[in-house]
């Protein structure tokens, strides 16, 4: 197989973790909203924790993106 083609396929595969990150982000925001609707008065206090969790989860997806970029550009 052509090396160029293998790189493109590899980069595509490396983007799959984005799906996991998407599921994770959905869980975070969904659960936050569910909790916030049950107890709206406590929502504001937990917003920072939610944003922190958002950033931490998003990172796992971005790691896949970075690996794809490294495959495409660094080799």
């Amino acid at each position: 197989m052509d090396v160029e083609a293998a790189k493109l396929i590899g980069a595509g595969i490396a983007a799959i973790p984005l799906a996991g990150a998407g599921v994770g982000l959905g869980l975070i925001f969904g659960n936050f909203l569910a909790g916030a609707f049950r107890n709206p008065s406590a929502a504001a206090a937990n917003q920072q924790t939610m944003l922190l969790a958002f950033a931490l989860t998003e990172f796992t997806g971005l790691l896949g993106f970075v690996i794809a970029m490294i495959i495409l550009y660094a080799f």
Binding site: A55, L56, E58, F59, L62, L63, F65, V66, M69
Partner: peptide, 16 residues
Amino acid sequence: ISLGVRLFANMLAGHI
């Protein structure tokens, strides 16, 4: 590593 790569990856990915 995770601390540095997190910020780097976010900025890199966003700008790309």
